[in-house]
Design a protein around this nucleic acid. Structure first.
Lengths: 352, 352
DNA sequence: TTGTACGCGTTATCAT
DNA sequence: ATGATAACGCGTACAA
């Protein structure tokens, strides 16, 4: 076959082609393809058939060019460790985001930031009109990310309170919308529960100081226990091992402690191991409360862990909804939306 | 300057604006912004300054419209379970893909297929010119996905041999490019190693039949041990528990077995637990070999596991490279590329 | 080397 | 209700 440019190049039909086939104008086809309002039924039907026959699919770029909407949202993951993918927290959040995005006919563009060296690339991408908005999952200290994102002027929502957003209430830095659970309230509830159980010396295994969730939970603990001495608080790294170590430290410092609130379930699991190793009974000798209610952790723990549940998938969903609201309010002079704080609930099981 | 167009709508500068500021034509600016070839240095410098001052960023949609290239690649994850995100295999593959894509200045658009109901949406998206190509991560039986993707005529590469691609060699179904490790060869090497150790009754814990990697590894086992009876083979589900159960079955059937090759590390871990529970020594009584060399599993195992290593991140990278090659070869009449099979290597540790 | 002019496929604004 | 037609922002033959 000497001639035959085709091969893979089967050119996609355009609006023009559909119009020709249906015997109408491009404008009419466009109307049918979109809302479809203001077109007489028989004509619309003819157009639909032409679309079907030709297998017409709107050209995304052309549409974006004129509407100035890409129908895509960036999800920025600022985490050098690829282990993030093994983090069930992250997985659930992404799942919520993905599902809600689908419901809004939007696509998810994954932007993985492995280090500051990627910042420029990200900024350029965000500024290039590829996406309508951005969702930033900031687990650890986000560094300059919030600033970078803000500079792009792109509507964006953070997952978890960024360190740059004031500790609470009216933010000090430029307000940045975010979705987070009520870390402080959840912690308070956990500690109050321990108090209601009659526990007198309640310790806290805190998370790393570069994560606001850890800070807020520690705040909640202190709020519920204003008189707790600092020797009742140990810092972990949100890992099982660090929880075990912290528990050991606490027991060394305060052998009389009779309860502990760990800032997450993994550390609670570690604490449980230490307690068992030291021959202490849970909850008889020491009551234990965790935070997260992560199935993957809770399911393998004995005794069943009393913990504070947060709905992570829902938080992912809410991030998308908040962003969508911001998108529709663009240029309407609407103020930066308030953070969305989702409720937590204490789940009573056997450990406290 | 009374005019200023400020407000929130700070319109992004266009090529036109840069040209005006630099005192050149749009075409020249375009040349500088892209390749930059064929522009006298002083002029180019002037243009670059204008770009800088105005903070110009090329409009993606406009560029795509004319070049017919979106600079984005879809990664299709056909896996209803969101647990996939917890799978270290998946995480590593995504990491490799993400990195190589970045190196090619391409973006990663995540398409999560939770069920057949999503197929139409995916097909439409793939056909809409949003992306230049697709990468499909097919862990389990991919069902109709390969067919759907093929129908879009979009260049695409599969991660792992799809069930629809013949067992090996010249594929029966329409050739679909994929990247996979040498499952069969790796399995053969594992078994031969056990043979070289003098083991006489070597069992196999196979993976689920709906995953080609499991089938290929089982084939490798049989190739090395043509005379092995079927009572030496048990089927697991690539999970630790299933591995433990399979090991128990095997021991019941053949108390004389002195070695076992598990189709992945997780099942090997389960097997190890069963062996320990039955008071059998590893490797003294029973030698064990796994497959994958997944750090998260291997690191917590005792004794250190002898296993077959595959470089998953590299496989992700290769998927991208293969796809990029296909993209550049479009319309050049190039045939569908052969599958890329990456080598495996036996890692000797203490268990065999 | 640089500039001119056209086309990419849509949507939106007008007439009709 | 429908149809011309002008943007949208850019790349690129082609001309200069």
């Amino acid at each position: 076959m000497p001639e035959q440019t085709p091969g893979s190049g089967t050119a996609r039909p355009t609006l023009e082609a559909v119009a020709a086939r249906a015997g109408v104008s491009r404008a009419t086809v466009s109307r049918v393809v979109n809302g479809g309002a203001g077109v007489r039924e028989p004509v619309a039907e003819k157009v639909r058939r032409a679309v079907e026959e030709l297998g017409y699919v709107p050209n995304h770029a052309a549409r974006t060019l004129v509407t100035r909407r890409s129908g895509a949202i960036a999800v920025i993951i600022a985490e050098p460790e690829f282990r993030i993918f093994s983090d069930p927290f992250f997985a659930q959040q992404i799942r919520g985001i993905s599902r809600e995005l689908t419901a809004h006919d939007s696509q998810l563009v994954l932007l993985w930031v492995e280090g500051p060296g990627d910042y420029e690339r990200i900024a350029r991408y965000l500024g290039g009109g590829h996406v309508d908005g951005a969702l930033a999952l900031s687990l650890h200290d986000d560094g300059e990310l919030p600033a970078i994102v803000a500079r792009t002027k792109l509507p964006s929502v953070f997952g978890g309170r960024p360190v740059t957003a004031g500790p609470e209430g009216p933010p000090a830095a430029p307000a940045v919308p975010y979705v987070d659970c009520d870390n402080r309230g959840g912690a308070r509830a956990a500690v109050r529960h321990l108090v209601s159980l009659g526990r007198k010396n309640i310790a806290h295994i805190a998370g790393p100081r570069d994560q606001t969730s850890a800070l807020d939970r520690a705040d909640g603990y202190r709020e519920a226990l204003p008189d707790a001495g600092s020797e009742l608080i140990a810092e972990g790294a949100f890992t099982e091992e660090s929880g075990a170590r912290a528990m050991a430290d606490l027991l060394d410092r305060r052998p009389d402690l009779d309860a502990v609130f760990a800032a997450n379930d993994l550390m609670a699991a570690g604490a449980l191991a230490t307690l068992r190793a030291r021959g202490l009974r849970v909850p008889r000798d020491v009551a234990v409360v965790g935070f997260d209610d992560m199935a993957s952790v809770v399911d393998r723990i004995d005794p069943p862990l009393t913990t504070v549940r947060q709905d992570v998938e829902e938080m992912g969903r809410l991030m998308v909804r908040l962003l969508m609201r911001m998108l529709s309010e663009r240029d309407s002079g609407a103020p930066v939306p308030e953070p969305v704080i989702t409720p937590t609930v204490l789940v009573r099981r056997a450990s406290a």
